[in-house]
């Protein structure tokens, strides 16, 4: 690809994610029932896709588990809910 060619890309905005330090920790998070309920899927071995609008609940649950999650950015629209 030439340096002047524009690269085709699809942009996903306002995605809610958990990124764990390693795969074992991600698995540990998934084994927590109340957290797993908020997870839509596992994007990679250490990356979990969260249901939109559930950031506050996820952070609260992580803290209840004894973690101190770094929260990056704020969600401007937390009202919509994916039910699956």
């Amino acid at each position: 690809m030439g340096s002047g060619t524009r690269i085709s890309v699809k942009v996903h905005r306002r995605v809610n994610l958990i990124v764990a330090e390693d795969a074992v920790l991600a698995q540990e998070l998934l084994s927590r029932r109340r957290l797993a309920d908020q997870v839509l899927g596992r994007l990679t071995d250490r990356m979990l896709l969260i249901r939109p609008g559930r950031i506050a609940a996820v952070v609260e649950e992580l803290q209840a588990m004894g973690h101190a999650p770094r929260v990056v950015g704020t969600s401007h629209n937390e009202t919509f809910d994916h039910s699956l």
């Binding site: 942009v11 995605v15 809610n16 958990i18 990124v19 101190a68 990056v72 704020t74 969600s75």
Partner: peptide, 29 residues
């Protein structure tokens, strides 16, 4: 210890993800 613990889990409340058509495109970007 407490500061390190925070680095273990990151929650992105509104991340932007770029999806490329191929791995080569991502590397080029």
């Amino acid at each position: 210890t407490w500061a390190d613990k925070r680095e273990r889990v990151t929650v992105y409340a509104a991340a932007t993800l770029l999806e490329f058509a191929s791995a080569d495109d991502l590397q080029a970007a």
